Amino acid sequence: MTIQEMKEKAMDIRMDVVTLIHNAGCGHIGGDLSEADALVALYYKHMNVSAGQVKDPDRDRFILSKGHSVESLYCILADKGYFDKQELMTTYSAYLSRFIGHPNNKIPGIEVNSGSLGHGLSVAVGMAKAAKMMGKDYHVYTLLGDGELAEGSVWEGVMAGGHFHLDNLTALIDRNGLQISGSTEDVMAQGSQESRWAPFGWNVISIPGNDMAAIDAALTAAKAVKGKPTVIILNTTKGLGVSFMENNYIWHHKPMNEEQYQLAMASLKERKVHMS
């Protein structure tokens, strides 16, 4: 895909997410909208994955560590043919549905059950270390939320990734500055994430996290780094694309009424028109 095509695809995924969450009456919409660009870049260009190779030992791996924002991932996997989109859109979060509110590895394309925050990076480290031990060249990616970085287990993974020189590992941080109870800096101050990872032996790239060209370049650069893992700090906007949700922590996890749904869809459609 070209950069423009990926930008347009990300807006389409956002519209699917808004509809999915509205239909279900639940979901973590703010983080879904901020992470969409990075997930599109991964799944439509940079990762060696497809619906036909879910068990291929040489496939790249992706772990959504911030598992509560699973709706964007589900919508992308449906769009790419991993499962029926209609089933997703009509059964998400319904009683006995396989499409639950966190990644479920009974669903094709989901590597790991996640959502208990702080675990995804350590699992990704293990997968990347396994690739090295087996002589495999697959790459492992994981996406974390910035609120999640208050978990101590994250930093065990950071230390291990640097210690083992896992240049087949890329972590992405959705740095939108907000979490369920407010600003990340008010809940647990983080300061500069850029300065925290390098001392543990990581290559650090910091970019505008909703700029598709910047994401594309950063992912390309990460694959070229040798001898150390890479972290990409995605400086994003929570709720991106929906005017009344942007930079508002209330929309971390909040259902929409019908009027809000229509306004959200109109906002996304207008944003897509203006990007072409």
Rank of each mutant, 00 (worst) to 15 (best):
V225D: 02
A222L: 08
L172W: 10
T236V: 06
G135K: 11
W155K: 04
G161T: 12
H28W: 07
V125I: 13
K228C: 13
S276P: 00
K9W: 08
H68F: 12
R196P: 07
R61V: 13
A51L: 05
P57Y: 11
I29E: 03
V231Q: 03
D84C: 12
V204L: 02
E151C: 09
Y82W: 08
G145Y: 03
A10H: 05
V49T: 15
G67T: 12
L143I: 13
S181E: 10
S192K: 02
A128L: 08
F164S: 02
A221R: 14
R196I: 01
D56H: 14
H46A: 08
K238R: 14
A10I: 10
G25F: 09
R196T: 01
I107Y: 08
I107M: 06
A130I: 07
E5P: 08
A221E: 15
I232N: 01
L166D: 05
D58M: 11
K45Q: 11
L73Q: 10
L268V: 07
Y92P: 02
T184F: 00
F244N: 11
L268K: 07
L143M: 12
I110C: 07
V123D: 01
M212S: 09
Q262C: 01
Y82G: 02
L20S: 10
G161P: 06
G25D: 04
G25S: 05
I250F: 15
E35F: 00
I63W: 02
E71D: 12
E111D: 14
S97F: 01
V187K: 00
A218G: 07
K129Q: 14
Q190K: 14
I107W: 07
Q179E: 10
T91W: 01
A198K: 15
G25M: 08
S267Q: 04
L96A: 13
E5A: 14
S276D: 12
Q4L: 15
T91R: 04
V49G: 05
H119S: 11
V125G: 03
E71N: 13
I205A: 04
L178H: 08
K272N: 14
E87S: 11
P57K: 12
H165E: 15
